[in-house]
Amino acid sequence: MLKPKLIVDGKRLDGRAFDELRPIKIEADVLKRADGSCYIEMGKNKVLAAVYGPRELHPRHLQDPSKAIIRYRYNMAAFSVEERRRPGPDRRSIEISKVSKEVFEAVIMKELFPRSAIDIFVEVLQADAGSRAAGINAASVALIDAGIPVKGIVTSVAVAKVDGQLVLDPMKEEDYYGEADLPIAFLIRNGKIESITLLQMDGRMTKDEIKRVIELAKKGVMEIYRLQRDAIMRKFMVEEDEG
């Protein structure tokens, strides 16, 4: 198939500016049986995250006597993409699970819960580029909702290069036909970006472009951070008003 023009008259295919996110909707505490949960929509991505724990870990040889272990499962539903996806983990979802797990290893205070496990499940119900970022954003809210001690809030977004232009939060067409795609996650504490907890890339970019990508991502991430906070606050404010 011929590559379509991705940027027309300085606008993207869906009419967004280069540094504009897709519409985001976040809701915390959506599952009764999970200790913490979150539902997020980032554009056409629909992702559900559930957190369990800290809980007893079996079999015992997996236990770590000095800290909790973290398990992260990123999974795409069979109906999440246009062509039916074969259920079960594949090479891609195993990789995403691994890197996402490492994001949270760095922010959860694991030492407080020796010999236990913290389980994070991320289910992608509908995918449209940037689903790992959406999953990380949802998991971060779900962890806080579960009352698990963390250093701050993790927020993630992707930046792509399409038609030579850097664009924030690419959608499927931009991801598919673009020259490069760079998902990135930050630890945000007290409204300030503290560190980068995930950085991947496929395609090529110059050193200068990477610097600009990070600046662009920082801007996008702060918007998402506010929405994540709102989602949790909203949930607990409602509870207070009932009284």
Binding site: M109, I144, D145, G147, I148, P149, V150, K151, G152, I153, I188, R189, N190, R229, I232, M233, F236
Partner: peptide
């Protein structure tokens, strides 16, 4: 929320907080 700055004097840090570089942050919701 976790990571919110709750005090700038590490001596007052109590339950549910952690200290980094002399600043006190909340550690959970």
């Amino acid at each position: 929320l976790p990571g919110d700055l709750v005090a700038t004097n590490s001596k007052v840090a109590g339950q549910g907080t952690y200290v980094e570089n002399g600043k006190v942050y909340a550690k959970y919701l």
